[in-house]
Simulated scan of single mutants.
Amino acid sequence: MAGIGVSSAPRRIRGSYMPVFTAGLALARSLAAARQNGLWLTSHQEGHLAAGLVSAGGPETARFLLLHLSGGTTELIEVRRGQAGRFDLDLLGGTTDLHAGQFVDRVGVRLGLEFPAGKRLEELAEGASPGAESLLPSSVQGLKVSFSGVESAARRLADRGVSRPDVARAVEGCLARTVGKLIRAGCAQTGLTEVLLVGGVAANKFIRRELSRRLPQTVRLYWAEPAWSRDNAIGVAFLAEQALSPT
């Protein structure tokens, strides 16, 4: 064993902290000391990034964009490869209120789905009427997006008696348009055209199809495998192996 890797914080920036990470960090330190192994501290976000890179097979460039879409994160990030096991991450934009996954979960629960609702909302949307994906607007200003207003609008659709599958597909359509505009803005600002998408919301098949259709062919999308979009543990292990393995 080369060593032990652990997520010590949500992001690798000063002040990034959640109590849930302290238990894993304490255990990793104890195991590393007992086994006399090296210990590599990384972040939850870098774990998602690394898992995405491994499963998607790229990007392989020194700089690229990362779009992290989940229940707790909606961020567009410029990534620069650093030393082994490290990335330099520059936050470009993201949500000003609800995260993409929160939007999905809140509407899903309103539709009677169990929490977390992402997978079931995707299944429900398969029965939607043609055109239902356009029932909700998207709110994007440059590199900032908002989901609180469209979440209220989705609730109003349900209250008016719009079918559950149509509301579910409307949520997917809103997400696809919103994310597409955010990616376009990020590419225009940075000049980068390779984008890695990770996080649970990025596993949605409809959103994947729509983004591939809507974005110009000059933008190359790399999708983490659906199971790896939601799980960052393998990414943490990959980063620790890079950093701690003898060269």
Rank of each mutant, 00 (worst) to 15 (best):
L39F: 03
V107R: 08
A34T: 03
G101P: 06
L69M: 12
I13E: 15
A168S: 11
D159N: 11
G112P: 04
T178F: 09
P216G: 05
A185S: 15
V219C: 02
D105V: 07
L25T: 11
V145H: 12
H68C: 03
V195T: 10
G82P: 05
H48N: 02
E122G: 09
C187R: 06
E123L: 14
G93M: 10
R230H: 03
G71C: 10
L121N: 06
G93T: 08
F103L: 14
G82M: 09
R230W: 01
A9M: 14
R12C: 09
L192E: 15
P226V: 01
S134A: 14
R214F: 06
A168R: 05
P59K: 08
R156H: 13
R209M: 11
L215T: 03
A158N: 10
G191S: 13
G101C: 08
T218H: 08
E78A: 13
S55C: 06
G199Q: 13
R208H: 10
P246G: 01
R120A: 15
A188P: 03
F21W: 10
P226D: 00
G149K: 01
Q102Y: 10
S245H: 01
R209D: 15
S245R: 05
T95P: 08
L136R: 00
G82A: 15
F115N: 02
A62S: 14
V54S: 08
L211I: 02
L215Q: 03
L192H: 12
A56L: 09
A84I: 02
E133H: 07
R29C: 00
W40P: 01
R169L: 14
L135A: 02
G24I: 05
G57L: 11
A185V: 04
F103G: 05
N204F: 14
G82K: 07
R156K: 09
G108L: 08
T61M: 04
A32R: 00
A154Q: 07
R214G: 03
R164F: 14
L76S: 09
I77S: 13
L175T: 08
